[in-house]
């Protein structure tokens, strides 16, 4: 079983995808919309790079494809849904911690103003 730290640091696209799957299972298009929303449109994943990342995450076991649809009412049955695995969640958390520590370091050295 690989350790979450083995995957760090994550590519920013990958991190965003994991974050977007943290609160709910989503299909590809939904991931893309969510990422665009959260970054105010700064990060627009192209369909190709999105699915290249998804494929890689599936192979690495950080996400899995759902066999049943999560939300039958709003389900678009043509779509494939993805969910974060436990490993995926741990990796995302580890990456968030790493970023948090970086941020703390930046504040401590005075690069960023300390939180009041």
């Amino acid at each position: 079983m690989p350790l979450p730290e083995d995957f760090l640091p994550l590519h920013k696209d990958t991190f965003h995808i994991l974050v977007s799957l943290a609160c709910q299972d989503r299909h590809g298009y939904s991931i893309m919309l969510d990422v665009a929303d959260r970054t105010n449109g700064d990060l627009k994943l192209s369909p190709s790079s999105l699915y290249a990342s998804i494929k890689r995450l599936l192979t690495q076991g950080l996400i899995e494809e759902l066999s049943e649809r999560p939300d039958p009412e709003h389900d678009d049955e043509r779509r494939r849904y993805y969910r974060l695995t436990t490993l995926g969640r741990n990796v995302a958390v580890a990456e968030a911690r790493r970023l948090e520590k970086l941020l703390a370091d930046a504040r401590m050295t005075g690069l960023l103003p300390s939180r009041s």
């Binding site: 299909h27 590809g28 298009y29 893309m32």
Partner: peptide, 16 residues
């Protein structure tokens, strides 16, 4: 790859 993700890619593209 196309068989696996082609349709999805297309859906994403049309959505956007």
């Amino acid at each position: 790859f196309r068989e696996e993700y082609g349709r999805e890619l297309q859906l994403v593209f049309t959505g956007r």
